[in-house]
Design a protein around this nucleic acid. Structure first.
Length: 420
RNA sequence: GGCAGAUUGCCCGAGCGGCCAAUGGGAACGGACUGUAAAUCCGUCGGUGUAUGCCUUCGAAGGUUCGAAUCCUUCAUCUGCCA
């Protein structure tokens, strides 16, 4: 298997390597032959999100460069929970974790190639953890972990005041053991993950060194944040889910389209497979003519296509064009408008339902009080016209494209209502 | 096992018997400006069609009181000290 010797340079250029073990040793390993590597995903929710996508796409980059992926779903680690600053997690039931394992697995598979010389392998750490005895675990794994070093980790330090259970404190042993297990079973010598995983990554590499006198590598991808340093995905619906049931392809596409100028280049490098030349061109165009948002459009189209496919991307684009285009909804043909609204989200309602109730029913606002407040603030629209009358009851004269009402809250939150 | 302290709205954090739906900050949301950006400024930020109203909220359940987030009891969780 020949490998692409420029891989590491490309990863570095894309900003995908926030930390790594000995960089030169890593470079040597990645240029000498196909490296078996792994990246893990814990089933902590019914769907993966934007943060996980960074790992998935990075795995794909490595595979395309000739390396061999092992994608791990954390059936075991998901039962325990990685410690986080916000406090102790609530344990999920075995049934819940099992269900999420299945979903997460299905979300990873489309991005990797399971055929060929460097075909990917799916593993579940539940397989080698479930039957492990406590005594064996403590003797074989625990012995290699100095508690003083574990206490010095940032996450643990931050939790010492508020409290941390032994369960979460031990998480690093499980993840480290995974690396050791994959090293023994498959010869896996590289693990990567998000930068918040750095301690777990090096923990595994060190365990391999201590237990097997083996040489293993690790690197961490950066945390993707907004330019003010806060996390992405905290707007409106919460996280940026990959599951189309949890976040529509339209909403997903809209998210990328609305990314701030200052972040377009970084996101293009991390989330797309455009070449360096293509990305630099897009950055130049965005800098010169920011109002055209060429970078955002390319980003939104590329990522949505990766995650949801070409057809969904076209639907999302068409919907956006219809809703944001000229603003003249009456000028659209019925099929176009109906299709656009279905992307944005629609409900059915009976004739004579008040505008306030419609806002609530579409979910654009969370209560009638919120709806009235929004109208008072001038943030409520019907068919792209601002509504000022709190008591408005839409009638037949408001219908567009036959039986539709187009509700909007704020600048860009649309919902369709089909009257009938 | 004993003693002490903590638990407030999305988050942080005041309040310590009535003036508390509960100060303040952040987040979020709406408006203005723009490009369906960023920054900035202004406004909103428990529910209820409009009532000096009513309902739900200050870890949970009871209780004291004309009246409790504020006092008492029990329970849960967390923290510290002592065994």
């Amino acid at each position: 298997m020949t490998v692409d010797p420029t891989l590491l340079d490309d990863l570095e250029w894309r900003g995908l390597i926030a930390h790594s073990t000995d960089r030169e040793a890593l470079r040597d390993a990645l240029t000498q032959g196909s490296v078996r590597f792994y990246v893990g995903f814990d089933p902590t929710a019914p769907s993966l999100h934007m943060g996980n996508l960074v790992q998935i796409l990075t795995a794909r980059r490595l595979q395309q460069a000739g390396h061999t992926p092992f994608a791990l779903v954390g059936g075991a680690t998901g039962m325990i929970g990685d410690p986080r600053d916000s406090g102790e997690r609530t344990l999920n039931s075995l049934d819940t974790v099992k269900e999420w394992v299945g979903r997460v697995r299905g979300q990873i598979e489309p991005y990797l190639d399971f055929e060929g010389a460097n075909g990917a392998t799916m593993v579940n750490n539940y397989d080698w953890t479930a039957s492990l005895s406590t005594i064996d675990f403590l003797r074989d794994v625990g012995k290699h972990f100095p508690v003083n070093r574990m206490l010095a980790r940032d996450v643990v330090k931050s939790r010492l005041e508020a409290g941390i259970s032994y369960t979460e404190f031990s998480y690093i042993l499980l993840q480290s053991m995974d690396f050791l297990e994959l090293y023994r079973q498959y010869g896996v010598t590289l693990q990567f993950g998000g930068s918040d995983q750095w301690g777990n990554l090096t923990g595994g590499a060190e365990l391999i060194r201590r237990a097997e006198a083996g040489k293993a590598h690790a690197f961490a991808t950066p945390l993707i944040t907004k330019s003010d340093g806060t996390k992405y995905g905290k707007t409106e619906g919460g996280a940026l889910w990959l599951d189309p049931e949890m976040m529509s392809p339209y909403a997903f596409h809209q998210f990328w389209l609305n990314v701030e100028d200052a972040k377009v280049g970084e996101l293009l490098r991390v989330f797309t497979f455009f070449s360096r030349a293509e990305i630099e061109e897009l950055e130049a165009v965005t800098a010169a003519e920011p109002f055209r948002r060429a970078g955002q459009k390319a980003l939104a189209d590329a990522v949505t296509t990766l995650v949801h496919g070409e057809a969904e991307t076209e639907h999302a684009k068409a919907a956006a064009a219809a809703l944001f285009g000229t603003g003249d909804l009456a000028g659209l043909n019925a099929a176009t408008l109906a299709a656009a609204l279905r992307e944005a989200g629609t409900i059915q309602a009976a004739p004579g339902t008040s505008y306030v109730d419609l806002l609530v029913e579409t979910g654009l606002v969370k209560s009638k009080g919120d709806a009235r407040r929004t109208i008072a603030e001038g943030g409520a629209y019907l068919n792209n016209e601002r509504i000022t009358d709190v008591d408005l009851v839409p009638d037949a004269s408001h219908l567009v494209a036959g039986s539709w009402l187009v509700l909007r809250r704020g600048k860009r939150n649309f919902a369709g209502v089909e009257i009938g």
